[in-house]
Design a binder for these strands. Structure first.
Lengths: 192, 192
DNA sequence: TTACCGGAGGGACAAATGTCCTTTGTTATG
DNA sequence: CATAACAAAGGACATTTGTCCCTCCGGTAA
């Protein structure tokens, strides 16, 4: 699925326009550029202004698993900043990307001093936990076809932007299996 | 895995002892009792004082998927309270359970008025997102045997407390597959 | 005691998915 | 232009996992 967070984006955009608060920087990234690397320190918190990025985890056996696709308003780097750990995943631009960035210490200050921001972050976290729970449950107990139908239903234009391999990595299957399922589904539709 | 949160438990225990703050209640539950039901309203936030509970999600196809086992200091009901949604999972006692409970509105107040508590909740969230991400990635890209070895490694006494079916539901496989893997592993060890 | 139930274990087969490898078409680059 | 690099597609086969059963056992209610 492609995660967004309109409330947070609106809030951060407003803050970015505010003369007196100048800790957000607007940066640009090109496709395939890396914003956060798994196992490395994280120095900033990021909020997407526009574009699509992938959030993925590289396993010890060499496979990549895509946690989510991120788009407008989605925040990342906040987890590592809050619990002061190294990054547990990688973030990479898929399309051209505009991103608001704020340094870790400024993020902490904002979190403590601005109750509206604090609330937005709490809600963002609550949503992250919830959708991760639902997605994991769904993934474990449904076939590739079910997962694919759901994905195409919720985000029909996905295949335009994203490679087959990324879709496979998002579903947690091989590209071969994804292809097989797609062609089986094609046959089904031909019969209708 | 069995999730715990010592810092949060220490904080809540101290607050519970405090005369001037009397919004935490200590409740007891017996095995198989339900604390939160999927799809229902959530009125309180819960923090475990002792015992083990399971957090699971019932899928549309009748299968249950266990998100986590919860123990000392783990919090739940906070997500639904913060984003004011119905519960997306169920919580059920496995062993005898002692639980601190606080009503939703009091939880909100505490979150706004007590910065230490606010920070503990933020960290709890950060950890939840992180371990969910890692677990989902691991689950998708490893065999049953790998998952089982990891589980027995991190929590060897688990099989004493928890039924085979629950283990299978936690790993996202059928009881039959779990059994097969267990007996295959037994054969392996016999050769060594 | 007897009958019954639910959990654990596992046989036989079916279905889903992965692995390995080949082909084709497109792009990009010297 | 030639050729390398790469994504997409799929054939053939192996492995993993699920489905559908049946049996065995220990508790327990009548």
């Amino acid at each position: 699925m492609v995660r967004i967070n309109k409330d947070l984006l609106a809030f951060v955009s407003r803050l970015y326009e505010t003369e007196s608060f100048n800790h957000f920087f607007l940066e640009n990234y090109s496709p395939k550029q890396s914003l956060i690397k798994q196992g490395k320190k994280v120095f900033s918190v990021f909020i997407i202004k526009s574009g699509i990025a992938k959030c993925y985890l590289s396993e010890d056996n060499g496979k990549d698993f895509i946690q989510e696709f991120f788009s407008d308003g989605e925040i990342f780097g906040e987890i590592e900043t809050i619990n002061e750990h190294l990054s547990f995943c990688s973030i990479e631009a898929i399309t051209d990307l505009q991103v608001f960035e704020i340094k870790g210490d400024k993020f902490h200050k904002l979190l403590r001093s601005n109750s509206k921001f604090n609330e937005l972050i709490l809600k963002a976290f609550a949503n992250k936990v919830k959708y991760k729970a639902i997605r994991h449950g769904y993934n474990q107990s449904h076939t590739i076809e079910d997962k694919l139908l759901r994905l195409m239903n919720e985000f029909p234009e996905l295949l335009q932007h994203i490679s087959k391999q990324d879709i496979a990595n998002y579903l947690g299957v091989t590209a071969r299996s994804l292809n097989r399922t797609l062609s089986d589904m094609g046959k089904k539709f031909d019969l209708m």
